[in-house]
Design a protein around this nucleic acid. Structure first.
Length: 278
DNA sequence: CAATCAACCTGGGTGC
DNA sequence: TGCACCCAGGTTGATT
């Protein structure tokens, strides 16, 4: 499900209902979600801890606890995170619930069980900045910065946009939509982009991700915001999962390619391949 | 460095 | 209804 705009929406939704709350209990529905940690051990270390902040880095959700540790949440494909009244039915796919001191619960649900909730020291949160590329909506992410990143790369631009160590937060939907908005064919070699194309790509990243946030994310099936509501950006998509349908700009049928197992959607007329490349 | 593939999981959709 | 596929917002590690 969740790429940068979805995770950003969830974090902003949760902040006012989570910060300042103290954890009073932990319910583990599926131990795989907390990986190596025993449920009893997690409970022991969480009960009594107060949430002091919540933040996003790439697609990671960082729930800061008093004392310096943090819960690092990754939603992967089908994870959901929200606050609900304790009295509400848990739902079939609930994996973890943190009981809070005001009668609500922070609930993590995940149909496919790929998502993870890990209790980590501050040093491990800091490691995110080593592992991940820059934030595409950040102040220091300038067209020049993007040009510098692309210049050394000989690979195709589409899979590069999905590489979290290259740029943090893009997933399959927004990568395809960004390349359409920039008018760049997904098969182009990154280092071959002209200065003008790099500027268009930079502007497209900002515009597409910004609109995704403004629309509160893209919902196909699993994604819900912090209140359990679907997003609205699925109505704005130009190419993603529109194979065979007419391009909303030029009318040509949208085509689909595959890069390392990931479906890639593009308009063959609005996103021309490089003249000499194949 | 670049690319592919298998794993990790469950469910929806389609064609026979 | 059943069954056999293919598809899916992600990441990691092995392999070539």
């Amino acid at each position: 499900m969740p790429e940068l705009p979805e995770v950003e929406t969830i974090v902003n939704d949760l902040r006012p209902r989570l910060v300042g709350r103290t954890i009073q209990g932990v319910e583990v529905g599926w131990p795989g979600t907390i990986a190596a940690l025993e449920p009893a051990e997690l409970t022991r270390r969480l009960v009594g801890k107060r949430v002091v902040d919540i933040a996003r880095r790439g697609k990671n959700i960082i729930i800061w606890l008093f004392g310096g540790e943090a819960l690092l949440v990754h939603l992967r494909m089908s994870g959901r995170l929200g606050v609900a009244e304790s009295a509400e039915e848990p739902g079939r796919f609930q994996r973890i619930a943190l009981c809070l001191d005001n009668g609500t619960q922070l609930r993590f649900a995940d149909l496919r069980k790929f998502g993870r909730v890990r209790l980590v020291p501050a040093a491990e949160v800091a490691q995110l900045d080593v592992r991940l590329g820059p934030e595409p909506l950040g102040q220091d992410f300038t067209p020049e910065a993007l040009r510098g990143l692309l210049g050394a790369r000989r690979g195709h631009v589409k899979p590069l946009l999905l590489d979290q160590s290259f740029l943090a937060g893009l997933g399959n939907i927004y990568a395809d939509e960004t390349l359409f908005a920039a008018g760049i064919h997904p098969h182009r070699i990154a280092a071959s982009l002209t200065g003008e194309e790099v500027c268009r790509l930079h502007a497209a990243l900002r515009a597409v991700l910004g609109q995704g946030v403004a629309d509160r994310g893209t919902t196909f099936s699993d994604y819900r915001d912090g209140y359990g509501q679907p997003g609205a950006h699925q109505n704005q998509l130009m190419v993603y999962r529109r194979t065979g349908q007419p391009c909303r700009r030029c009318g040509a049928p949208i085509e689909r390619l595959r890069f390392g197992g990931r479906g890639t959607h593009f308009c063959p007329r609005c996103q021309l391949p490089a003249p000499e490349s194949s």
